[in-house]
């Protein structure tokens, strides 16, 4: 327990001077922050502000042009992601990390059943007992409020909201410590969004997950995150506690963002 507390004082993920440029085009520059266990960070900004590039850099899907990202492995050692081999990186992605795509078709196998979608990560880490895999898959479907009767249906027969919930179950089944989410509520209607946000908020707090959520929707940031980073033109222009940034924005651009929310 004491160890756990000591661990929580250490950052889980650290970005230092992170940048990415494509020739003369600078997609993202000089981003530094630390993410602690159990913390939810939202990255907000308009399209083209570098949010998604940053998320890809943080999740080691893209190599940075400058700076580095380090992650605290389960053994407590901070490792530079660039120094990990591909096998280690992919293993991290199957175990410690989750990645929720905006388009569920990218994160799911649309042609195989929901149960196999959830079970795939388990089988990838060596589970070899059909009954246990299926039990775990059904308990996760229950947790994300998908009818157990649909376990053998392929996600292409699912609605958009169900697909997104299935994607979340598929990611959380191996008990990750960190989840990346790229516009998790994009393309869903308002009531489905509300239900999904509610579910995600509960899961994140129940499991003590750390999460990095990229969104252009400030309501998502307000509901889910503890801290917010506002990006513009590839730079972080403002960062702070969510309530503080959204209720009392200092930067003119953030003020504009906040004021451009349509009143409900």
């Amino acid at each position: 327990m004491a160890d756990q507390e000591k661990d929580d004082d250490q950052p889980l993920l650290m970005a230092e001077g992170l940048g990415k440029s494509y020739g003369r085009l600078i997609a993202c520059r000089d981003v530094s922050f630390a993410l602690y266990p159990g913390e939810v960070l939202a990255i907000v900004g308009e399209s083209g502000s570098g949010k998604s590039t940053l998320l890809q850099l943080l999740s080691a899907q893209l190599a940075p042009s400058a700076g580095r990202v380090s992650y605290r492995m389960r053994d407590g050692v901070m490792r530079d992601l660039a120094s990990l081999g591909e096998a280690e990186r992919r293993f991290l992605f199957r175990t410690d990390w989750g990645y929720v795509h905006q388009d569920p078709a990218q994160g799911l196998r649309m042609a195989v059943s929901a149960g196999a979608n959830v079970g795939e990560r388990l089988m990838a880490v060596g589970w070899n007992h059909y009954g246990r895999i299926r039990d775990t898959a059904s308990s996760w479907l229950e947790r994300v409020e998908i009818d157990i009767a649909r376990i053998d249906d392929a996600p292409r027969t699912y609605s958009g909201g169900m697909r997104q919930r299935l994607q979340i179950a598929r990611n959380l089944v191996t008990g990750p410590l960190l989840v990346f989410m790229d516009e998790p509520t994009g393309g869903l209607d308002v009531s489905v969004q509300a239900r999904l946000l509610d579910l995600m908020r509960n899961l994140v707090s129940e499991l003590g997950l750390a999460a990095i959520v990229v969104t252009h929707d400030l309501a998502v940031a307000r509901l889910l995150s503890h801290r917010v980073m506002v990006m513009k033109g590839g730079r972080v222009i403002e960062t702070g506690l969510t309530d503080q940034v959204l209720d009392d924005p200092r930067e003119p651009y953030t003020q504009l963002l906040v004021s451009s929310i349509l009143p409900a």
Partner: peptide, 22 residues
């Protein structure tokens, strides 16, 4: 090819899982 190179064969069991489920 990458999956073969890294010995990631979880997906092969997905096929067998689907068989049993169906």
């Amino acid at each position: 090819r990458r999956m073969h190179a890294l010995g990631e064969y979880g997906l092969m069991h997905v096929k067998l899982y689907e068989d049993i489920a169906r």
